[in-house]
Design a protein around this nucleic acid. Sequence first.
RNA 1: GGUCCCAUCGUCUAGUGGUUAGGACGCGGCCCUCUCAAGGCUGCAACACGAGUUCAAAUCUCGUUGGGAUCACCA
Length: 479
Amino acid sequence: MKARTRFAPSPTGYMHIGNLRTALYEYLIAKSLGGDFVLRIEDTDQKRYVEGATDIIYATLKQVGMLWDEGPDVGGNFGPYVQSERKDIYAKYAHELVELGGAHYCFCEKNEETSDDENPIGVKFDDPCKHIPLAEAKKRIQNGEPFVVRQNITKKGTSVFEDVVYGKIEIDYDELDEGVLLKSDGLPTYNFANVIDDHLMQISHVVRGNEYISSTPKYNLIYEAFGWTPPIYVHVPPVMKDAQHKLSKRNGDASFQDLTAKGYLPEAILNYIALLGWNPGTEQEIFSLDELKKVFTAERLNKSPSIFDITKLKWMNGCYIRNLSPEKFHELAIPYYNKALTRDVNLKFLSTVLQPRIETLADIVSNVDFIESLAKYDTALYQNKKMKTDENIAKTSLKLALNVLKNLDSWTNEALFESLKKVAEKSGLKNWQILYPIRIALSGKETTPGGATELAVILGKNETLKRVKNALELLETNF
RNA sequence: GGUCCCAUCGUCUAGUGGUUAGGACGCGGCCCUCUCAAGGCUGCAACACGAGUUCAAAUCUCGUUGGGAUCACCA
């Protein structure tokens, strides 16, 4: 049988990291086995539908390169791929399930607070409608009475099933409740739709969060009633924000969109989340999607929840940024330059200086602030024990440097460095006693991306000379 | 509360009866160096606890503790 997996998000908002990771594992299981990855939209809860949410799903999957073989937009042999368009299918199977004895019609009033006061935890709902004869129930439906289809749990004993991640799971049938399968609006609940769709779409591996473990026996009962074979189950543990809270949009935790907006690369995010709960069995950590397809096996998925660690993502993102071609990096950096800079500077060179130094693209902004305008700074910055400089040395160094720089025509990093080195030699100063003050004069900052000559190249000759002159004036009035 | 599941450095993890318990992030130190990064080297740091089984347990069993999930006309 061909491996087929599905990603079945409900269009309720943004793409969560946990969702995306589940999608990744689904994609990798299918692709590592040479199978198909199906996209299905689970929009059976009209109340939670969010306009535009499906577009975010499409866009995200495309950005990370997880292309689907079948789905609402690309079609396929098992459509439609949007659940609200499959209403008739579910209704047909729901009625069939009633005939088969796997469910019954229920006419009880909907009670929003069932799980709280009226039906306290631990007390199962015992549906009186279970005992209505089928013929009578059908008559009431024909008369237009609203109804739901509710599952029958008649089996006794223990349900056993095998999970790829968790192994053998045993749950007593007594624990299962007779949940609603088809709602009074005619749409199915997840509990029913997922079984029908997964079977009809010939899904071989069902990958989902481990919160579904305890209801899996109910799904198996439905498969059984229809005489269908249940899929291979792969329940994955959640991605946590900390030891006790799941990562969730509701808490304002980062979504994929938030991360890319903050300058994380889609490839890095994907690589990072692949390793949150899975490992290759080797010490390799950097993986492209194509590499993952080759080495992924569901058997190496972890059982326990993992905490999303932005610090490690940052490091990994830095690795990806450094591995970018200089051209690509420059292209990605431009929007950030446009945001932070209006001055005409050597952006190409700025990119080469920035690339090895930043971990997210957003770091660009804080790194280039001094280029746009030189903030007021304390001349104490010129004091540095290790560099053996202070305001007085800076004053002489800058004077010497200025004389050479103003006559220098070849404004490259190498040329600047060579000529300043000569200044140092002639004056008996150390290289850094010349270079350190220049760097301060050009930036007004203690630490900068790049050294004195690099900053000079970025700023250009005019601005460099201007800033050195200003620095000298400042030093002369104070010392 | 019932039931199910989980438990190795702060974090992500390797480990399937015999290892100096390995790697990565982070943190500290050193080297390199035109500040800071990057790169190289290095240090600190873990088997939740208690019984058992065994010549031998992070690994197997039981219990305890801690955590998570589930018990909707949400998925």
